[in-house]
Design a protein around this nucleic acid. Structure first.
Length: 348
DNA sequence: AACGCGGTCAACCGCGATGGT
DNA sequence: GACCATCGCGGTTGACCGCGT
């Protein structure tokens, strides 16, 4: 037995809205509000529309202070950065861009930004992209060795919000910073969100077409470097970002660890060992987490894609990173990360 | 002028989440 | 706890438009 339809399909008008319908809906909501029931609303005002359709029309078009089109470079970068962090959660991304709707951002991403990304990647290839990225990374590593030797895990304590912001130069300060979260893809493909995100990370998470050298830092720069092992940095970065999250944001976005909502852990007493184990078990899967490790997993998980995305991703692959103790390191990092997350989430 | 094609975007659809009973 | 109605989200569709041939 299927789900009952939300409205009588036969008596409901579909397709584009007329100006009369718009006017009816707008004036009613402005005077009375939605009444907390979208399904009943169209009958109340004599619209032959589905309640869901009314809601969508209001949210995406009629609502006051809606902006359409004309995305700025800064908005591009925000969308891009958030996409790296949280994936295709358009509603959350839209919440960070006043006046923008999730539908708008989704359309903008699918029709423009993704292509912009492709174009930029081709440019990189024409300029010897693979070697460029590699050498750029090495330069960053060297720079990190010199300048960030004091960076320690403890610097990610929740009291360091201001310091943390300093490593996100183009991130508007009023915006909550969302952490990269486990991203599950049972069968990773090159044209899926995770792959696009990896590509974005490789490209620095920015869409500036500017080929001139700038002082803008890439996402690689955003990971402060540890002189012991640079691979730790994305995880530390994740920790920092998580620490910066407000409890409200966490609850709103409801990050899950193997079905356990992180937000529900707040205020609950639970043994450290149990929670560590729980998070550790989750990270064992590694599906989708690979973007947190940059090249390491990409290279350990080499796949041949026939799609355009596949070719792009393959072109970006770097020589394998040799790390005999990778697994141990990884587990240690993840457990440390888990412990730090739990510290943030509350006493245990 | 007619046609085909690709890009854009408003709207639809289905499903999971949520809240009330 | 089960059930139901509704909400909210992300993916997809299809109408429309501009451009090239």
């Amino acid at each position: 037995m299927g789900r009952a339809p939300c409205c009588d399909k036969a008596n409901v008008k579909k397709g584009p809205w007329s100006s009369e319908e718009d006017a009816k809906l707008k004036s009613y909501i402005e005077q009375h509000g939605t009444g907390g029931n979208w399904i009943a609303l169209p009958q109340k005002i004599g619209l032959k529309r589905c309640g869901k359709s009314c809601r969508l029309r209001w949210l995406n078009y009629l609502r006051p202070n809606i902006k359409h089109g004309g995305f700025s470079e800064e908005e591009d970068n925000i969308i891009c950065s958030l996409y790296i962090s949280i994936g295709s959660r358009w509603s959350i991304i839209a919440a960070q861009l006043p006046g923008r709707t999730d539908n708008d951002i989704k359309n903008y991403w699918n029709t423009r930004l993704k292509k912009k990304l492709l174009g930029k990647q081709r440019k990189e290839q024409q300029h010897g992209g693979r070697r460029n990225i590699s050498s750029q990374k090495q330069e960053i590593l060297r720079k990190g060795m010199r300048e960030n030797s004091n960076y320690m895990v403890s610097s990610s304590s929740s009291s360091d919000h201001h310091n943390n912001n300093q490593i996100l130069p183009y991130w508007p300060h009023e915006l909550p910073v969302l952490p990269p979260i486990p991203y599950s893809n049972e069968e990773p493909r090159f044209n899926d969100h995770a792959s696009i995100r990896k590509l974005l990370i490789k490209l620095g998470g920015k869409f500036s077409d500017d080929d001139q050298p700038t002082n803008e830092v890439t996402n690689l720069d955003q990971y402060p470097l540890d002189n012991n092992n640079s691979m730790v940095q994305p995880i530390l970065y994740q920790q920092q970002q998580l620490n910066m999250l407000s409890a409200e944001t966490l609850q709103e976005t409801q990050y899950n660890l193997d079905g356990v909502n992180v937000s529900t852990l707040q205020g609950q007493s639970c043994s450290q060992a149990t929670l560590e184990q729980m998070i550790y078990n989750n990270t064992q899967k590694l599906d989708g987490l690979e973007f947190l490790y940059g090249d390491i997993l990409i290279n350990n998980n080499r796949a041949v894609g026939n799609s355009e995305w596949g070719q792009i991703m393959n072109s970006l692959l770097l020589p394998p990173v040799v790390n005999s103790d990778y697994e141990g390191l990884q587990q240690g990092m993840l457990q440390d990360c888990a412990i730090d997350q739990l510290r943030y989430l509350g006493p245990y």
